[in-house]
Write a protein that binds this DNA or RNA. Structure first.
Lengths: 233, 233
DNA sequence: GACATTATTATGTAGCTACATATTAATGTA
DNA sequence: TACATTAATATGTAGCTACATAATAATGTC
């Protein structure tokens, strides 16, 4: 009678990871088939499969049907960013949240926004410029474009009271989100809105979302000097 | 005889997501049990389970044993960052990669690095300052600390030829990675190394990794002006 | 030999059962 | 009433079978 202890997929995953890290299998090598691993570990193929899926998702191995599983030649660092509603971010730091609508107007899509959405032609969109505050100090300034064809209800929302950020996130789940992060020097208008000094280094988050193929919103959020973005382990 | 078409977990997930988005279930609401959904959709509980796991991972719902599944009151945007080896990043842009070791020395941990690792006391570490180049132009400058207790072999690696980035990623998989992103104005030494102008806005990525509880490396990578970080959809 | 067709193969998914685990609700006892 | 113990419950996981799918290898035809 063989030893029939239960193997968790986590322990299987760790065993395989260990083998990769101690060079039993090196970069580019083909790993045994799931079934072979299952026999080796004395567990079911489904358990190996789950372990492998996790390793593949974390970027350590690559899987292809028929092709089998190979150790990635060039491992990537994968990190998950958690971007909450700005109000919550502020409140979780123990600060008081404030919000201020600056401008709002219907405009045809600018070339930059068309590029973000990969749109071939301009569409009518609502452009909303607003400021998020923490303890009455500027926190994040957002310049947002909302597609009126996809989100017509936005015109009947009072954006002086509720931020477009909050309304959209609560009412319009998205199926795809593109993110772009970079630094840029603060302009004169930045320093006016964010009460920063001209030439300050500003952290910019550009975010574009779709539901299916339909564009929802594209925005550039400029944070106050000193802002930091973390991963949540 | 009931209609026995196969339901993929993806379609089940999308159906449930759709219900949440069209307010069949609102923020904070408790969703039916997996079994009930399974009966409703005419599929197995395991299929609903997989759909739910995905929704939970993407941040739309929260699951708790016995507590059931609830729609998150405050949805978060979750994005996965793909951070490849710097050499690959450069090569994938079609540029020629270059590498240059600037300084290397054994030092006791600085307070900032101790904080990154959450270490109670200083440990001997190898500090490596190096520059990554794209088409002979500065691309990313990294200031890296490597824990000698966890990675003693690093002392026998010729870091003038191989970057610590590459050696570590190939030889030392990690189990935990903390990431911090921010912008900071370039200092005089930055502008010398990165050939930037003083006052340029620089994008900084701080990365700290562990294997189990043991610290591996902590680094601050400063990118050349104009650098952008993307999510890979 | 070039190209279309047909096996082969390893991963991916759906469905089932059984049991594990965490957490809440119910119950019993001082 | 207060607190410990026990039952109930929804999700989580392991194992199994069967079939789907994609990609490669083998084969056949001109």
């Amino acid at each position: 009678m063989t030893d029939k202890q239960r193997h968790s997929w986590v322990s299987i995953r760790d065993s395989i990871r260990e083998m990769i890290l101690n060079s039993t299998y090196g970069p580019g090598d083909k790993l045994p088939r799931d079934e072979e691993f299952a026999a080796q570990f004395g567990c079911a193929r489904s358990t190996v499969h789950r372990a492998m899926r996790d390793l593949a998702q974390s970027g350590l191995v690559e899987r292809r049907r028929k092709g089998g599983t190979t150790v990635r030649r060039d491992p990537v660092t994968r990190a998950t960013l958690n971007i909450p509603i700005t109000r919550l971010e502020v409140e979780q730091k123990g600060s008081t949240y404030g919000y201020q609508l600056i401008r709002q107007s219907v405009q045809p899509t600018s070339p930059a926004i068309m590029a973000n959405f990969a749109l071939p032609e301009a569409r009518p969109m609502l452009r909303v410029e607003a400021l998020h505050l923490a303890d009455s100090r500027p926190y994040i300034f957002e310049d947002r474009w909302i597609c009126l064809e996809t989100v017509p209800e936005i015109t009947s929302v009072d954006l002086t009271r509720e931020s477009a950020n909050e309304w959209l996130v609560r009412n319009r789940p998205y199926s795809r989100c593109d993110l772009r992060l970079y630094a840029r020097p603060g302009s004169a208008s930045d320093s006016e809105i964010l009460q920063s000094n001209p030439g300050d280094a500003l952290f910019v988050m550009e975010r574009t979302t779709w539901i299916g193929e339909a564009p929802i919103t594209s925005l550039s959020a400029v944070a106050h000097p000193g802002y930091q973005l973390f991963t949540q382990g």
